[in-house]
């Protein structure tokens, strides 16, 4: 910088040119090293990689510096309270919302986004179809857009149980049927990944059950699934991996079981509480021990099953009146992570 200030006229131009050349070289070497990196990629097939994604609506940042990746064969859940940026994130990766900064790539970045989307099945919020067209006509149109043959239509209609209604106009469908048609349409190309945004929102219990059954069926066939939801039990039941968002920031991403307390905890009751607490404190497997209303909660540091513990305590002369081994629920974990006071639930 100092050199630059002192230089005049022609020298200044030369310095600028040198800087440009240096910069070009740098970016070139960067891109070639990136290329090497892609070549030596691990065997895990990456479906989607998101790097430092940010989306601002005016001053409000809906998504902040979000990075994650999705590998083939897993079922992912995006969890977060309302307004945490789930739908915005999905909108960006699905090409309908423009990101402010950051990037994402489908299938290792080998194809353009819209071509990649032909291998993706996605349902965002409410099902959108042409109301004046029948179920069959709508699905035929989707086939044309995705550039696939129409031979799968009947099979997928059967999967979601809409075969009898195939020649009825979309506008006459109930919400549950619309949602099921959307799933059929998303599956038409036998997608590599199925993306669902709040698929059970606004459905009655029967509808919710039907949709979950379909999702389970699809998941069991080995399709990768990305499920955005604020319904925890939904995610807990279906997903193997989870990404937790709050106010556009990633709080956690990884396996569901890693997120739940690693080894669970025991709830114990006995006549002589103090003896039990001392015994547990000296046991190598236990970490934190809480005592509340005559109930002892002992958190495990390593795996230990109830049978072994019971036998051990019995040998030491302690007879239990209550023994339960539990894992923390996703809900408890989620609330701790998103910093919402759990006491509200207890009232």
């Amino acid at each position: 910088m100092i050199i630059f200030k002192e230089a005049h006229g022609r020298k200044k131009i030369i310095i600028i040119i040198i800087i440009i050349i240096l910069y070009c070289n740098k970016t070139r070497s960067y891109s070639s090293s990136r290329h090497e990196e892609l070549k030596n990629k691990p065997i895990l097939e990456s479906i989607l990689t998101v790097n430092n994604l940010t989306k601002k609506f005016g001053f409000l940042a809906a998504v902040k510096d979000l990075s994650f990746s999705i590998e083939k064969g897993n079922v992912y859940g995006i969890l977060g309270p309302n307004g945490s940026g789930k739908s915005t994130t999905l909108g960006i990766i699905l090409n309908v919302v423009n990101q402010t900064s950051g990037d994402f790539s489908w299938f290792g970045g080998t194809t353009s986004t819209h071509n990649a989307l032909k291998k993706v099945g996605a349902i965002i919020e409410r099902p959108n179809f042409y109301p004046y067209m029948t179920a069959l006509q709508n699905l035929k149109l989707v086939c044309k857009i995705k550039d696939v043959g129409q031979d799968k239509i009947e099979e997928k209609l059967a999967l979601v149980g809409l075969q009898e209604r195939r020649n009825t106009k979309f506008s006459t469908f109930s919400l549950g049927m619309k949602q099921r048609l959307a799933i059929a349409s998303a599956l038409l190309n036998d997608p590599e990944i199925l993306i669902l945004d709040e698929p059970t929102n606004g459905l009655d219990p029967q509808g919710i059950h039907q949709i979950r059954e379909i999702i389970k069926k699809v998941a069991s066939s080995g399709t990768t699934i990305l499920l955005a939801s604020h319904l925890l039990d939904e995610v807990e039941k279906v997903c193997s991996h989870v990404i937790i968002l709050r106010k556009g920031e990633k709080l956690y991403s990884g396996k569901v079981e890693d997120m739940l307390a690693t080894h669970g905890f025991f709830e114990l009751k006995t006549a002589d509480l103090n003896a039990l607490v001392t015994l547990l404190n000296n046991h190598a497997s236990f970490g934190k021990i809480n005592q509340e209303n005559g109930l002892i909660t002992a958190f495990l540091k390593e795996e230990l099953d109830a049978l072994t513990l019971n036998q051990y305590l019995f040998e030491k002369g302690i007879v239990l009146s209550h023994l339960v081994k539990r894992k923390e629920s996703l809900e408890e974990q989620f609330l701790t992570l998103t910093n919402t006071p759990t006491t509200i639930n207890k009232i």
């Binding site: 699905l94 090409n95 309908v96 353009s112 986004t113 819209h114 071509n115 990649a116 989307l117 032909k118 993706v120 996605a122 965002i124 409410r126 959108n128 179809f129 042409y130 109301p131 989707v142 857009i145 995705k146 550039d147 349409s185």
Partner: peptide, 17 residues
């Protein structure tokens, strides 16, 4: 108004197309 533009894009039609 039918929001089908969004769906078309999600289904793999580019904005240019």
């Amino acid at each position: 108004s039918h929001k089908t533009l969004k769906q078309n894009l999600i289904d793999g039609l580019s904005k240019k197309e």
